[in-house]
Nucleic acid binder design. Structure first.
Lengths: 117, 117
DNA sequence: TACGATGTTCGATTGTGGTCGAACACGTCA
DNA sequence: TGACGTGTTCGACCACAATCGAACATCGTA
């Protein structure tokens, strides 16, 4: 059973972390992980992309230090890497808090769009 | 004198803000703006790109709601948009605090690289 | 008015990133 | 062992972003 590579934070640039968070799908994954607050199986992510693409996003999140990626049998489980908060204190928290607000804003914008028709 | 377009935050997605911050050059610009803590003229940014590219980055920052872009005579001045902190409280602060730490880490990594030779 | 300084816009190039289907690897279970 | 489920890797495609030089617009000034 091959283990995944989890780079140390000394090799990770902040701009890579932010780029990783800059994709809507990856941001949604992080938001879900934060909401559930525990290790989460792959199947739980209802994303509108194929498994190859999802795998790609997971690798991106892993390589930028955002998630820990563990294999158990044939399935994968991911969780937020807790050390991230030691390296960049409060960063992920404020991003995910912002994400909640963003989701609310986007929903509202959608409603207004529907109401306008 | 044509004014610049500054989109309202209702039309801006968080992922766009984070993507904008995900580019090293733009992140450096934001860090410099935060460090100087005031409106800053274009000439102060010592970036390793041509003026066309810099203009492009400034537009990206402006369109993602991060900066205010003002023209005075033939020169341009930019500043961090204060409303950003109302929409996403603490977000930019923690990013820029992380940026300081990141710069320190990158410098250290460079020193180690030099020392190893 | 003509010139120089400062940014913007345009067109082209190049690189990177997201996406997919198909093939593959690995573990589980009958 | 063979079939199935779960993810990864590969190859290709496409969209977009970063970059540059050149042309343009605008303002200040000689």
């Amino acid at each position: 059973m091959k283990e995944f590579e989890h780079p140390s934070f000394e090799t990770i640039k902040l701009s890579d972390v932010l780029s990783a968070l800059g994709d809507p799908i990856r941001l949604a994954i992080m938001a879900k992980l934060h909401a559930s607050d525990q290790e989460t199986g792959w199947g739980s992510f209802e994303v509108a992309v194929g498994k190859a693409t999802l795998s790609h996003h997971m690798k991106t999140l892993r390589m930028s230090g955002l998630i820990r990626h563990r294999k158990e049998g044939t399935r994968c489980f991911v969780a937020i890497r807790p050390e991230l908060n030691d390296v960049y204190p409060g960063l992920l928290d404020s991003v995910l808090r912002a994400s909640l607000r963003d989701q609310a804003m986007q929903n509202k914008a959608r409603e207004n769009l529907v109401a306008a028709q």
